[in-house]
Design a protein around this nucleic acid. Sequence first.
DNA 1: GACGCGCATTGATTTACATCAAGGAAATGA
DNA 2: TCATTTCCTTGATGTAAATCAATGCGCGTC
Lengths: 238, 238
Amino acid sequence: MKESTFKVDCSYCPIKHRAVCARCEPDELEILNEIKYYKPVAAGETVALSGERVDYVASVVSGVASLSKSLEDGRTQMVGLVLPSDFIGRPGRETIAHDVTAVTDLTLCCFHRKPFDKILEELPHVRERLLEMMFDEMDAARDWMLLLGRKTAREKIASFLVLMVNRSTLPKELFIAPVRVDLPISRDAIANFLGLTIETVSRQLTALRKDGIISLEGNREVIIPDFQALKDEAGLSD
Amino acid sequence: MKESTFKVDCSYCPIKHRAVCARCEPDELEILNEIKYYKPVAAGETVALSGERVDYVASVVSGVASLSKSLEDGRTQMVGLVLPSDFIGRPGRETIAHDVTAVTDLTLCCFHRKPFDKILEELPHVRERLLEMMFDEMDAARDWMLLLGRKTAREKIASFLVLMVNRSTLPKELFIAPVRVDLPISRDAIANFLGLTIETVSRQLTALRKDGIISLEGNREVIIPDFQALKDEAGLSD
DNA sequence: GACGCGCATTGATTTACATCAAGGAAATGA
DNA sequence: TCATTTCCTTGATGTAAATCAATGCGCGTC
């Protein structure tokens, strides 16, 4: 099966200010451009499986992907939510230790792994930016550990909504109530993200609704009349 | 209060093969050496607090430290266990987002932060190694998220013991049963690490003992007659 | 329009772990 | 030596979330 892949010019790239290439000079972009190709992935499709060989690393240009790990009996935990500009893959290693799945339709800006490893040695701006992104990801992971280990179901849901708002809304928009967010993932995926069951997610969402903290429009849209009230429910620290 | 700090020659450094400086050439070590100082920290002391300014980054030469985050009401989650050769701090940023505490007496090999940031730009081997260490830490964090979100108390305890064995025992020694481990942290710290209470930790340890998976000698030493049996209890994947 | 299918909600019940409450054992110190 | 403290274990009880089990709702298909 031939994969449909193609190349695109960087100048109109929507993630050029945040992705791993954000700090690059034009000549550096030119070098990256030579090992790059775009790759669409349909919602629901597997991008890579744990332990599997992957011969590229990539930036997410558009769409949402999830990183997850499972126990043999099927219990699954999402260990990362990958949004546009985020980086997928591990340079210098052929395999990854988690599954990567397209949650929505996805556009990846892929770099062949071996030449990318070489570029990492040669282009300081790529390496610098990647290191910074890893530190940010590590901080987010630590916040998530606090959530998974110590927060109640209600706090988990509230934290999740706060995260969704922060990642999809400009800071200044937060002052214009009500805030609206479109949830990018299903109840089931939220449950896997928060270390809960789908039933608990559903119950806590309706509980927050009954308490007037949020209101729901359809299954995917959440309206938040008072963002501070929601943050208070989240136990702070995100 | 004057801090007691001092400098030490790198050639006998016990962590020189794994720390952030592991890939350095002699001339690079020389440069690092100029901004470095040793710093002892007593068990129980705080190394740094969340949000606080820290003017150094450091490698742990000996001892164990913990990274933790708390909610306002006191619930605490350990988000990292820092062992010898591990790196503490965030280059390029003045503050960190978690508390760092000395679990045992600690020896830190500190680098003044600002010159270290500069060195990171200039010495590719440091940057390279740091990036690799961050990826490893990220993988470990993801394993931990799976544990926190989806494992039972018994699996958590077993996973913790497996981790302790893997970090303190050479692979080939695992074939010589029984394996012995010294737990570096108290029950209370284990509870904070695993997202449990101290009582549950205690109960699960005695349950594993009664089932013949482990035996306990004093409060800190664990003997594992059959390491594979313990791994089976851990739900695999560590 | 009726059927099936995939998601989400809601209710009843169970259970794993937390919380509350006592004690025991080893370390520290007068 | 006996307090005192610190750390750990064990037991009784409570509870938050899981599990089990219907039911509802939108949506595409025949």
